[in-house]
Amino acid sequence: MSRLQIKGLTKKFGSALALDRISFDAADGELLTLLGPSGCGKSTTLWSIAGLHQPDDGVITVGDTTLFDGKRVNLPPEDRNCGVVFQSYAIWPHMTVLDNVAYPLKLRRVNKKSRHARAREVLELVEMAPYEGRYPHELSGGQQQRVALARALAHPPRILLLDEPFSNLDAKLRDRAREWLKHLQREIGVTTVFVTHDQDEALSMSDRIVVMSGGKIHQIGTPEEIYHDPADRFVADFIGTTNFLDGAVETGHGNVTDVRLPGVSTPLRIDGPRPDVDAVTVSVRPESIHVYERDHHRADHPNLFPVSVVDRSFLGDHYHYWVRLGDSTLVLESTHKLSTSELHIEIPSDKACLFSADQDAQALTR
């Protein structure tokens, strides 16, 4: 079993707290992504697992093996059996592809015949066998990335650690690499911790996501949970695009809350009991907003509002429209080129998240 468990991991660099007692786990065979902005602590966490950083406190275990436990246990990197792919790939320029991949086995004193046989096996796995005699400068960026991954798999790792491995690839190649790596990870079944600041990578590849900021964990969940049910305002703002509308709680009855938006005559109705605060912020995704070019007022659709278009942009398969709703501006999506500047929008009551007006607010309607 290769279940990864991290408990209370803490790391300081001088007086700066990089990791603040974080805890999470990755199930055997799971692809877990650490996601957050630069400086959030995700790479520090990865290097702590690999043994390249020594934490100040906490526990790291893989299966029944303790990798780190405060001052009592701190296995050296070579004894942790982690396969690591660096952002820069870090493959040896003077070695052929075959020798690069076989190098971890050479360090472990595996005989030449056996290590070359294993290297060729993993090169087949990453679809690089025809290039075994080439040198790194004769490869594209995507090919170098596959060589780095093959080297990490040469000595079968208990944990695979990936530090933004696609950041040096162009957009189209990055998309292909994501799908290819996701398929490969499922095929070999290795527990994987993937570090990225790219939301699309995290959402498309992960079994679960750990959202981090300032050395702390804000939320752990599936991509769907993180996107549709953010734990706090930071997660809602960081993942994808969202609209924030400040307002005041007007009434609450049953499992419905009415929020008054500045400059809007009718309240916005949101599913969920009335919160214990008056000043709130509503979050709603652009794609959740329904757009109508004519007045569609109906009794069973309370959240219909007139808006005026102030700007738009064409994004290939859809348009973004910036519209004025009372005193607020929000962005919405449509697959159609709208012919008028006066629209009606509907905000479904079950698609809006409610936060207190505090910038660090937790969700009120989860």
Score class of each variant (00 low, 15 high):
Pro37Gly: 04
Leu161Lys: 09
Arg72Trp: 02
Gly41Gln: 01
Leu52Phe: 14
Gly51Asn: 00
Asp358Gly: 06
His290Glu: 13
Pro306Arg: 12
Ser2Asp: 05
Leu153Ile: 08
Tyr319Trp: 15
Asp175Glu: 13
Asn74Arg: 14
Val110Lys: 12
Met1Gly: 13
Glu293Ala: 03
Lys351Tyr: 10
Val323Trp: 01
Arg115Ile: 00
Ala102Arg: 05
Thr96Asp: 07
Asp79Trp: 08
Thr365Trp: 03
Asp295Phe: 02
Lys71Met: 14
Thr191Ala: 00
Gly252Tyr: 06
Gly51Met: 03
Ile220Ser: 05
Glu224Val: 15
Thr44Cys: 07
Asp276Phe: 02
Asp276Thr: 14
Met205Gln: 03
Pro302Asp: 03
Val280Trp: 04
Ser2Asn: 13
Glu138Arg: 08
Pro348Asp: 03
Ser140Arg: 10
Leu105Asp: 10
Ala171Lys: 15
Arg134Asn: 08
Asp207Ile: 00
Arg208Leu: 01
Phe166Arg: 09
Thr10Asp: 06
Thr281Ser: 15
Val280Tyr: 04
Val211Asp: 10
Ile347Arg: 01
Gly272Ile: 06
Asp229Ala: 13
Val331Glu: 12
Tyr103Asp: 10
Pro130Val: 02
Met128Val: 03
Leu315Thr: 01
Leu181Ala: 04
Asn243Leu: 01
Ile159Thr: 06
Ala363Lys: 07
Phe166Gln: 10
Thr340Ser: 09
Arg260Ile: 07
Gly83Lys: 12
Ala154Leu: 04
Arg233Glu: 11
Leu19Asn: 13
Ser283Asn: 12
Ser43Tyr: 07
Leu203Val: 02
Ala236Gly: 04
Pro55Thr: 12
Ser2Thr: 15
Glu225Met: 11
Lys337Ile: 03
Arg274Thr: 06
Asp311Asn: 13
Asp20Met: 06
Val256Gly: 04
Lys351His: 15
Val264His: 04
Leu173Gly: 07
Arg298Val: 10
Asp300Glu: 15
Val210Leu: 11
Thr335Lys: 05
Ala248Tyr: 14
Gly58Thr: 05
Glu250Gln: 14
Gln144Asn: 08
Val264Asn: 08
Phe234Gln: 08
Asp278Cys: 09
Met205Asp: 01
Arg294Ser: 13
His116Leu: 02
Val284Glu: 10
Lys71Val: 14
Ile22Glu: 07
Phe244Pro: 08
Arg186Phe: 01
Gly316Lys: 07
Ala171Tyr: 10
Asp311Gln: 09
Val256Tyr: 10
Thr65Lys: 15
Val210Pro: 11
Ser288Trp: 00
Leu161Glu: 11
Arg274Gly: 02
Glu225Ser: 13
Gly39Pro: 05
Arg294Asp: 12
Gly51Cys: 04
Thr340Asp: 00
Arg294Ala: 12
Ala171Asp: 05
Ser48Lys: 08
Ser313Ile: 02
Ala152Arg: 12
Ser308Gln: 13
His116Ile: 02
Met212Ala: 11
Gln362His: 14
Glu293Thr: 07
Asp200Tyr: 11
Pro230Asn: 08
Ala27Met: 07
Thr45Phe: 01
Gly326Gln: 09
Arg274Pro: 01
Ser334Glu: 00
Leu19Pro: 04
Thr335Tyr: 02
Leu261Glu: 10
Ala248Ile: 15
Ser328Glu: 14
Ile6Ser: 06
Val101Pro: 01
Tyr103Trp: 13
Leu338Asp: 00
Asn168Met: 06
Asp327Gly: 03
Pro55Asn: 11
Val310Glu: 12
